[in-house]
Computed example of a mutant assay.
Amino acid sequence: MTDTSGGPVSASADDRQAVEYVLGRPLRQSWPPGALAPGSRVRVVRAQDWDGPWQVEFTGVVDAMGAPEPNEHAQAFAGELRYWVTFDTPQRDSGGDGPYRKALIWDRHLRAEPGGPDTP
């Protein structure tokens, strides 16, 4: 699903429908100010304080399927967002489940990479 032309990734209608069905609500489409833009290249990094959430670090792109949403988990940082990220190659989580091609990632596990929508 990565757009090799450097433009934003187009969201998959099938993925969106499936996720909205599971969540029981529509995904947000209003992008928060200051959030990474759809199509931004990112590196998914491992946590510093535990062995996860993924087996290895890898790259992907912020997916336009749904806008970043506030992370309401009890261990979330104040103002932390969660992003839909499509992986360059399928990945397994720290528990060995997967491989996954896309996931909802907490922004503390994302690092911006060159090559996104605003960089050559």
Rank of each mutant, 00 (worst) to 15 (best):
L104T: 02
A112R: 13
R82D: 12
G34H: 03
V44R: 14
A11H: 05
H109G: 00
P117N: 01
G60C: 08
D118G: 12
Y21Q: 15
D51H: 06
R92K: 15
Y83M: 09
G79L: 03
F77A: 15
P33A: 12
R28N: 12
A67K: 03
L23H: 05
V61S: 12
E80H: 04
A76H: 00
V56Y: 08
Q29T: 14
R111E: 12
P117E: 11
P68M: 03
G60Y: 02
D97M: 07
D51W: 04
F87G: 03
Y100P: 05
E72P: 06
F87W: 06
F77C: 04
S40K: 14
R41Q: 11
S10P: 10
V19G: 03
A67F: 04
D14R: 08
L104D: 10
T59E: 13
P26M: 06
G39Y: 10
D93Q: 04
P99N: 05
F58P: 11
F77Q: 15
A112E: 09
P90Y: 00
Q55M: 11
T59G: 14
R92G: 00
P117M: 06
V61I: 02
P33S: 09
P99R: 05
L27Y: 00
G79H: 08
L81R: 13
A64F: 01
P70K: 04
A18Q: 12
G115V: 03
P70Y: 07
A37H: 06
R82I: 14
S12V: 09
A47W: 04
G115W: 06
D51L: 07
W84E: 01
V62R: 02
D118M: 07
Q29L: 11
A112I: 09
D15I: 14
V45D: 07
P32R: 14
T119R: 13
A11Y: 04
G115D: 10
D97Q: 13
V9I: 14
I105F: 00
E69Q: 11
V9C: 07
G98I: 10
D49K: 07
A37N: 09
R41S: 06
A103S: 14
D88G: 06
P114Q: 02
D3H: 09
D107H: 08
R82V: 15
E69F: 11
G116D: 09
K102P: 00
T119M: 11
I105S: 01
E80V: 09
G95I: 00
G34T: 03
T119V: 06
P32T: 07
G98S: 03
Q75S: 15
E80W: 08
F87T: 03
R28M: 10
R46Y: 03
V56D: 13
P38F: 01
P8T: 10
